[in-house]
């Protein structure tokens, strides 16, 4: 009697005769195979070049000449990284990427801070302090966001020359700040507009003025959008090549331009390992920004998602 009933139960669970609870899912269904297959292919496609770069940058030149680019290094050497940082030659000088790195830092930090500060204030004004002509201003800004940069290069050169900052780091900082303005303002304005209007009204009734509302109400609840703006600006400005080439001189070249000159210099043998190391070093900053801010970003969104 007991035996029979227990086999019955076993049968019942193994065939799922009576559906109950979560529906069992097959691990190797056709759907899963397609999904994971596609994901793996895509991942390999993106990771393989990075792998090749890292591996090559850790090899000596003799090993590279063997020709097997996928093979891991037999003898790991950091020589290429050191050389890329401090000795690699452009057509003009031989002090590596370090000069370009510091130039890029000096360009990026103020550009990011100034452009975000100004753009967030613009967005705040457009969203909450509807001044006369706000709509016109906003339209012009949107149009500005869609004008191709190339069109504005020459006029910008003339303006910078007349201001006496052409070819200097300050000049490039001004350019980055100005060109980041339309899209950032749009970003901030839309974010602030989406915040409940009554929050702003409550703060006004509480006696907070323009700056108090901005710093004590708007800013603290808008951290996610500030992080987004920072990601956009840091990576955009760090990776910029066009403005760097146009608006600076060899002394003030940002890292990307320096990298280009190292990789494309035509003296002697092509040192692939040095080139790869130089490229990786240049890409390191945006990479770190993505990793660090990615975490911040997720936390920011989660905090903002809870309705207050």
């Amino acid at each position: 009697m007991t035996a029979i009933s227990s086999t019955n139960t076993n049968l019942g669970t193994s065939t799922g005769a009576e559906p109950r609870g979560a529906k069992p899912k097959k691990a190797f269904s056709r759907r899963n195979i397609i999904i994971y297959g596609t994901l793996v292919v895509a991942a390999v496609y993106y990771i393989l070049p990075l792998y090749v770069m890292i591996v090559t940058s850790l090899k000596g030149m003799p090993e590279i000449r063997l020709g097997n680019i996928f093979a891991p290094p037999v003898q790991i050497t950091f020589e290429p990284w050191v050389k890329a940082w401090s000795q690699a030659c452009t057509g003009l000088n031989c002090d590596g990427l370090s000069r370009g790195f510091w130039n890029s830092v000096i360009i990026t930090v103020p550009s990011v801070i100034i452009s975000i500060a100004v753009a967030s204030l613009n967005g705040y004004m457009l969203a909450n302090w509807r001044f006369k002509g706000a709509d016109l201003f906003f339209t012009i800004l949107i149009v500005g966001a869609f004008i191709p940069y190339q069109v504005m290069l020459y006029p910008m050169v003339i303006i910078l020359r007349d201001l006496g900052v052409y070819g200097t780091l300050q000049g490039l900082i001004i350019v980055h700040t100005v060109f980041g303005m339309p899209i950032l303002t749009l970003l901030f304005r839309n974010y602030f507009t989406a915040l409940p209007e009554e929050l702003f009204k409550a703060a006004r009734v509480d006696g907070a003025g323009f700056w108090n509302i901005y710093f004590r109400i708007m800013l603290p609840i808008s951290l996610p959008i500030f992080v987004v703006a920072m990601i956009i600006q840091i990576t955009g400005i760090w990776n910029d090549f066009l403005f760097g080439v146009v608006f600076t001189k060899p002394d003030t070249y940002p890292m990307t331009v320096q990298l280009n000159n190292i990789v494309n210099s035509v003296q002697g043998v092509k040192e692939y390992n040095v080139n790869m190391a130089a490229t990786l070093i240049t890409g390191l900053v945006p990479l770190i920004v993505y990793f660090v801010s990615g975490k911040l970003f997720v936390r920011g969104i989660a905090a903002g998602a809870v309705k207050g």
Binding site: P196, E198, A202, A208, N212, I221, G308
Partner: peptide, 24 residues
Amino acid sequence: MVFQSYALYPQMTVEKNLSFGLRI
């Protein structure tokens, strides 16, 4: 004024919400 959507400052504690106007 009291609003329909409460309009409390989400980043402040209740106490800070109450005292915000007075601190300003």
